[in-house]
């Protein structure tokens, strides 16, 4: 099987993000990058599918800047076989990213049997790329996936919906499956895995190679700002039962008149 995994590199969850000087994106200089956590589930799922299907290869794809290739190296250290990087600024919109991923798959010369990704990237939280990619490739797609069973080219996919219930889909592969937490437990990259990853092939393409240009841009980012600072919280104390009604009254009053939430 030819298994593809789309991974994004995102700022470490502990990063304090700042807008850049002209507000067109975030300041990326001092950021520590990690693989998007949801994509770790996708890589793990790919490795599980590979283990269950002889003669499979796992190719990881990433569109982004070349400065730091953390996400691809991590995926290969976990066990992916090869990687393709489409070099681009980190501020592409979802449409350009999906188109570049499609181009990378085509350039690989392999017909995909399965494409996996995370359900969303924790930085831009757009939740669009897997669906756009599926549409461009004319493939079915399911997102927020928490269960994956394969029987030949039939996939039984469990998807989480609001309220905690599950939808079960039967999908014929090739398909684009966007994974959520709960589908599996991603393995660690072992130290020997990290060493082996160095020797695995990493192909680098330009946006031109995959026929993506600024004309494909649908969203232009112009005014990144930090959200207004939250005012300090208020603490209410009722030392005994007798004080409680008074305090409750005060809290309700403030919620109604000041916070205006009730």
């Amino acid at each position: 099987m030819n298994i593809f995994v789309c991974v994004k590199q995102v700022p470490d969850t502990e990063t304090k993000v700042q807008p850049n000087s002209d507000g067109s994106f975030i300041e990326t200089n001092a950021i520590k990058w990690i693989m998007n956590p949801y994509d770790e589930f996708a890589v793990e799922q790919a490795l599980l599918v590979k283990a269950a299907n002889s003669d499979s290869t796992v190719t990881v794809l990433r569109v982004g800047s070349v400065k730091d290739t953390e996400a691809l190296r991590t995926a290969m250290a976990m066990g992916a076989d090869e990687a393709i990087l489409v070099e681009a600024e980190d501020n592409l919109d979802s449409y350009m990213t999906a188109k570049a991923l499609k181009g990378a798959i085509e350039k690989s010369g392999k017909t995909p049997d399965l494409i996996l990704s995370g359900k969303q990237a924790i930085d831009s939280d757009a939740l669009q790329v897997p669906q756009l990619l599926a549409q461009m490739l004319g493939l079915p797609s399911v997102s927020v996936v928490v269960g994956f069973e394969q029987n030949g080219d039939k996939l039984q996919i469990k998807r989480e919906v609001e309220g905690g219930s599950l939808e079960v889909y039967e999908v014929t592969s090739p398909a684009v499956i966007a994974c959520n937490k709960g589908i599996n437990t991603p393995r660690y990259a072992s130290l020997p895995g990290i060493m082996k990853a160095k020797k695995k092939p990493l192909t680098q393409l330009s946006l031109g190679d995959v026929s993506v240009s600024e004309e494909d841009r649908r969203v232009k980012y112009s005014d990144y700002k930090l959200p207004p600072e939250k005012p300090a919280g208020k603490k209410f104390e009722a030392m005994d039962e007798a004080q409680a009604p008074g305090v409750v009254k005060e809290v309700v009053g403030l919620l109604r008149n000041e916070a205006k939430v009730i």
Binding site: R73, A77, Y188, A189, S190, L191, I194, M195, K198
Partner: peptide, 11 residues
């Protein structure tokens, strides 16, 4: 590579 070792061990 050592940075990756360290990062993995820290994780």
């Amino acid at each position: 590579e050592q940075k990756e070792f360290k990062e993995m061990a820290m994780k």
